[in-house]
Design a protein around this nucleic acid. Structure first.
Length: 137
DNA sequence: GCCAACGTTGGC
DNA sequence: GCCAACGTTGGC
């Protein structure tokens, strides 16, 4: 299983809205960046991801899982853009802020820290474990 | 609200 | 195919 990180501005789509969708999950629409799209293409059903609030909060707030593999993005007619569906699994007992991630040497190579603008990122197994540990899971 | 980083577009 | 101009993202 692979691990990922999904960024969203809570003004646009928040963790609470994601949770409200329940087990049905929701399309992760609106990605217009090839790197991010390619990451979604690589996702498999059941892969896990962190849900990150950008701009407001700037923290990892929960865990999601891929509930449908990559398919055309229904928010556009442009065939270049595809997306997966994700559903909320559980909130983190303690949110991990960007500040904390930056201060943690074991996360120095994380895309969240090094490539701030990428909206859908891969997370290594080691990074996943460190964040779970910090979050109290 | 500013601006740095970075991706995309389009002229040549 | 290069690169300048431009637009967008996201931290601060």
């Amino acid at each position: 299983m692979a691990y990922w990180l999904f960024k969203s501005e809570p003004d646009t789509w928040s963790w609470d809205q994601q949770v409200a969708k329940g087990a049905a999950g929701e399309e992760w629409t609106g990605v217009r960046n090839y790197q991010a799209r390619n990451n979604m293409r690589a996702m498999k059903l059941g892969d896990r991801g962190f849900f990150y609030h950008s701009n407001i909060g700037k923290e990892i707030v929960g865990i999601v899982e891929v509930s449908a593999e990559c398919h055309p993005d229904s928010s556009t007619d442009d065939p270049r853009w595809e997306c997966v569906d994700i559903r909320a699994v559980q909130p983190l007992p303690r949110a991990i802020t960007l500040e904390e991630a930056k201060a943690e040497p074991r996360l120095a190579e994380m895309a969240l820290v090094k490539n701030t603008r990428l909206s859908v990122q891969p997370v290594s197994e080691a990074e996943w474990a460190v964040i779970c540990e910090l979050a109290g899971l």
